[in-house]
């Protein structure tokens, strides 16, 4: 269940982006206490070992490595291109997709397995009601 947001502040772009009032934003995962599989976002059952009552919410790491990516040159109408669509293995588990920013969108400049960190920022889009959203992004960890 996701709580209905009533605040006037920005909303999380997806339910697993957590925006605590008094702490840094983070990504939430669920970890199977039986087999250790880590999932991005909430779930009740483990699709790896089939355990039905072993899921526990965990804070996912803010760092990881670029598993694979593509540079997107054509996308759906209204989407600014080019951008880097990245699949990242977070340290400690969980695989997640997002834009890799602060890097030239050029395959020559991007290396798989490079360390990245998770950053949170305004998503740059508003919904029909005018709400703003906070998204996660990845950026090269070296730039830290």
């Amino acid at each position: 269940m996701t709580e209905q947001a009533v605040s006037t502040g920005p909303l999380p772009i997806v339910p697993f982006v957590k925006l605590p009032e008094d702490a840094e934003p983070y990504l939430e995962g669920y970890k199977c206490q039986a087999c250790g599989a880590v999932y991005v976002g909430e779930r009740n059952t483990c699709s790896k070992c089939f355990a039905t009552d072993k899921m526990e919410a965990v804070k996912l790491a803010g760092t990881g490595r670029l598993y694979t990516y593509t540079v997107v040159y054509r996308s759906f109408p209204g989407t600014k291109v080019p951008f880097v669509s990245a699949v990242v293995d977070l340290d400690g588990g969980g695989t997640i997709k997002g834009n890799l920013i602060n890097i030239e969108p050029d395959p020559e400049k991007i290396n798989t397995d490079m360390p990245v960190k998770v950053v949170f920022a305004d998503a740059g889009r508003q919904d029909k009601q005018g709400n703003s959203y906070i998204s996660y992004f990845f950026e090269p960890a070296e730039s830290a």
């Binding site: 598993y67 694979t68 593509t70 054509r74 996308s75 880097v84 699949v87 997709k97 998503a123 889009r125």
Partner: peptide, 28 residues
Amino acid sequence: QEGIPTEGILGSNTMPTMFSELGMEHQR
């Protein structure tokens, strides 16, 4: 329907993107 489109923020979910990411996995 709800929220904002995530394409170009949370990466891309076009079909070419998926198979390009898989191609880059093969390259890697």
